[in-house]
Every structure is written in structure tokens, then in C-alpha cells.
Simulated scan of single mutants.
Amino acid sequence: MYTPRRPRPERALITGAAGGVGSATARRLVADGARVALTDIDQDRVRALAAEIGSAAVVLPADGTDSDGVAAVVEGAVGELGGLDTVVAAQGAAVGGGVDPRHTESWNRALDVNLHGTFHVAGSALPHLVEASGSLVLLASTAGLIAGPPGAAGYTAAKAAVIGLTRWLARDYGPRGVRVNAVCPGFVRTPLAQGSMAYLAKREGITADEAFALSARHVPLRRVAEPEEIAACCAFLASGDASMVTGHVLVADGGGAAVDASTVAFDPPPVP
């Protein structure tokens, strides 16, 4: 009978740790008994998170699009924690822009943050995860499965590529004992989603909270996710409870991706 080497993560690196999902994942893994290395380009917020968490956290700020900086972060995490058995790549940014040549800069930026940064951390961390028979969790998005918000061509393409990268890594590194999975949230109540909600709120003349509710009007659960709910998905995939799960894309969107857009006109009125 197979017995996981560790039931829960013990030494974890979290990228994008200053963000809503990244910080929630850090708190969850520490609550589960892990020590965590936290990295993000936002030094002030990631240091504040580490101060909140306490001695179980170390801070290694870096620009996630800089391959040398990411490699230094990984080596720093290995040195501080004594190795790595878990990496959660949660960096990301909602960068607007279509496919008009005028949007080339935003397209490149969307891919740099959401795809290339994930590529850099995976490449640097995987040798250590092989040594530990560890787990890599990549944050994608339902935008990678179905068309994302209008004006988000680069973000949508990048998240679709993260899903493809997840499956390739699972196939290539499974024989070496590493599990690789992706989490695809829909809208989450985080600063990353606030830009979209601010636009919707202004367009409709409503509050940001009402915009979140409007965005979830046809989602089966009728609400957006909280960061802690996505963190729980990451913690599960990183744990021994998911010991037979690799190459999987876990959709955590309240059922939104299961809905055929052509049928939403038949939905009953929203529950008061």
C-alpha cells in the first residue's frame, strides 16, 4: 500500500504571497503546520504578512518576471527552510488589452506576469521538488478554460497556457515523484478582482459589493469565492490527501464554468 511521505506540506514556497489568494494560502499552510517562504514584488505587503504569521514565515521579495531573481528566491527558500516539498505559484495580474497592435505592450506584460513567472519558478523549484517527492500547485483561472472578461486577451491566453504547462509538467515529472496540479478560480473577493468590479460598478451605477453580486448572478452558487476557499483547494492538492492526483485542473468557481451561456435567460430570478 502506498503511504505518502508527508500528509501535509512542511516546507513551502508561495509566490505572489502578497495577493489575496497567496496570503490566504500562506496562512492556511502555516495553520496546517508548514514553514513558508513568501515572495512578491510588493515588499511592504509581503513583509506585513510575514510579521502577522510570525516565526513560521521568511520573506524573500522579488520580481516574479525576473528569472535570476526567481532562481535566487528558490535557493534562498531552500536554504532558509532546509529544502522544499511544496510550491504554490500564485503570482498573477489582471492586465487589460485586446489583440490590436496598440496593445502589444499589455499583451507582453500579461504573459510575463501570469505565464513566464510561473515558468521561471517551476524551472527553478522542480529539482528540489524531485528530491522531496513534492508537489507544485499553479494558479490558473477559469479564464483559461472559457473566454475571460472583455479586454483581457493576454490574461486569458496566459492562463490557458498555465493549464497546458500543468499537464505537461505532470506527465514529465510524475515518474520522478512530483505531482503538479492547477487551481482555476472564477472571481474571488481579492484586490485582483477589484479593477473589474470597479469598472462594472461605474458602468451600472452600483457599489463594488453589488458588482460582485451581479457578476455571480448566473453562477449556480450565486456568489464569488473568498480567498480562504481557494487556499483550501491549494492546501488539498499539496497534501498527501491528494497523493493520487496529478495533472488535474481543479475548478473552484461556484459552478460558473458548468453553465451554458445560451441558457442563462431561462434562470429563475436571483434569490433575494
Score class of each variant (00 low, 15 high):
V58Y: 03
P127E: 14
A125G: 04
G98T: 07
G54D: 08
G79E: 04
D85V: 10
A94R: 14
E52R: 10
L126E: 06
V58M: 04
G79Q: 07
V78I: 05
A122L: 11
H103N: 14
E52P: 05
L115W: 03
A94D: 10
D85R: 02
I53K: 02
D66G: 00
V88P: 12
V130R: 05
P61E: 00
F119G: 10
V88Q: 10
H120M: 10
E80V: 13
V70G: 11
V88I: 07
A89Q: 05
V99A: 13
D85C: 05
A125M: 12
E75L: 07
A90K: 09
A122Y: 02
A132Y: 08
D85W: 11
L115C: 02
G79S: 01
E80M: 15
G96V: 14
D85H: 02
V130K: 09
A122C: 11
D68A: 13
G76M: 06
D68E: 08
Q91R: 15
V121N: 05
L60V: 01
A93D: 14
Q91A: 09
H120K: 05
G83Q: 11
T86D: 12
A90V: 09
V113S: 03
D112C: 02
R109G: 05
T118I: 15
A56R: 06
G97N: 01
G134A: 11
L126W: 00
A89T: 02
A94N: 13
G123W: 14
P101W: 09
A132R: 10
A57S: 11
G96W: 15
G69M: 01
S55Q: 14
G97E: 02
V88L: 10
F119M: 15
R102D: 15
R109T: 09
G97R: 03
A56L: 09
R102H: 13
L126T: 02
D63W: 06
E75N: 12
D100E: 08
V74S: 03
L115S: 00
L81R: 01
G97I: 03
L126K: 08
S55P: 12
R109C: 04
L60W: 00
G79W: 00
V58I: 11
E80Q: 12
T86M: 11
S67A: 14
L126C: 13
S124D: 14
Q91C: 07
S133L: 12
E52F: 08
L84Y: 04
L111N: 00
L60Q: 01
E52Q: 08
L111H: 07
V58Q: 06
T65H: 03
T118C: 14
A132Q: 06
W107C: 11
V73Y: 07
D112P: 04
T65I: 06
G54E: 03
E75I: 06
D85S: 08
D63V: 02
E131D: 15
A110Y: 12
A110M: 07
P101K: 11
D85Y: 02
A71D: 15
A125N: 11
G134S: 01
A62N: 06
G76K: 00
E75T: 14
